[in-house]
Amino acid sequence: MGKALFITGTGTDIGKTYVTALIVKKLRDAGLNAGYYKAALSGAIPDENGRLQAGDALYVNKIANIGEKQENLVSYVYEEAVSPHLAAKINQHPIDFGRVAADFTRAKEKYDYLTMEGSGGIICPLRWDDTMHVGLDDLVKKLNLGVLIVADAGLGTINSTALTAEHLRARDIPIRGIILNHYIPGDIMQEDNARMITAMTGIAITAFVKKDDTDLNIDIAALKNLYE
């Protein structure tokens, strides 16, 4: 059984998938057996045959050169670009968390280092109906995962990152680190953001990712240590 790490963002469109791809690529470039998994993906685009293409998962698959089939990368794929719980409701196809747990375990058995990407922020609802109320944080707890937070380096990140860290701690979910995306070296505000995030959360910034980076600036041993 391999080790695993969960990647969450402080919100939507902060580059979580981009950073996740760099993480998996770094591991694979080092010769490690690294894979990717996502429970639910919304906003998929149909191909010419009408088959939904799991964009985020396929992007990581390509950048990290995993060579995995789409059905092994993500369990639930929805076309509507909305929260998974709403997409599931629209399609009358709710998430079966037994299936998710089985798919996750299968991926973890196949790969030594499995990176699981979330949907949006940590309290994103995955299923919210008459049967059950389940958020992303509930799934992370169920799978017993530690979390790496991906945040934008710009304006507003102190608040969103500190609140994400506070919620994870309230749920007793281990925080493995914080990566700042869209980082501009020498930018006085962004450098202060990094300092303030560490001061307010007690968590050192794990890595900085600049625009168009093709490699994650972190020692491979340090990256491996994020996985448990």
Score class of each variant (00 low, 15 high):
L86I: 15
V74P: 03
K142W: 10
G11M: 09
P46T: 10
S160P: 08
N144W: 07
Y113F: 12
F104D: 06
I158H: 02
Y113I: 05
M189P: 02
D96K: 06
T201V: 09
I173E: 08
T214D: 13
N181G: 07
E109Y: 03
T164H: 04
G55V: 14
R106T: 14
T161Q: 09
L155R: 11
G121T: 04
K16G: 10
A162L: 15
F208M: 09
P46R: 10
L126C: 08
K38C: 10
A107D: 04
I218Y: 01
A194L: 06
H182N: 14
R195Y: 11
M196Q: 13
I45K: 10
M196E: 13
Y113P: 01
I173D: 07
G156Q: 08
R28D: 05
L114S: 05
L41R: 02
V134P: 02
A170N: 15
V209A: 05
R176F: 06
V209H: 07
G15Q: 12
G11K: 12
S83M: 08
R28W: 05
E109W: 00
L143V: 01
I179G: 05
A87C: 08
V77C: 05
A102P: 00
I197D: 02
D213I: 07
V74N: 02
L32Y: 11
I197N: 01
L139I: 11
E117R: 05
A194E: 04
E228N: 13
F97I: 05
V134A: 00
K69H: 14
K26P: 05
F6Y: 13
V24Q: 12
A87D: 08
I173S: 03
M1V: 09
R99H: 11
M200A: 12
I220A: 00
L139V: 12
T214N: 13
E80R: 05
I158P: 01
V140C: 10
P185A: 14
A207H: 09
F6V: 07
N225Q: 14
I184T: 14
V209F: 06
L216G: 00
A162F: 14
F104T: 07
V82W: 06
K89N: 03
H133N: 14
K211Q: 11
G11Q: 11
D96F: 08
G156C: 09
H85W: 11
E68P: 11
Y183K: 08
K16Q: 13
V60Y: 03
T201K: 03
Q92R: 15
K38Y: 07
P94D: 05
I175G: 08
T214W: 00
L32S: 01
N91A: 15
K16E: 11
A40C: 04
R171P: 02
P46I: 13
I175R: 11
N193Q: 01
Y78M: 02
A153R: 06
V209T: 03
L136V: 04
A221Q: 14
L73G: 03
I158W: 03
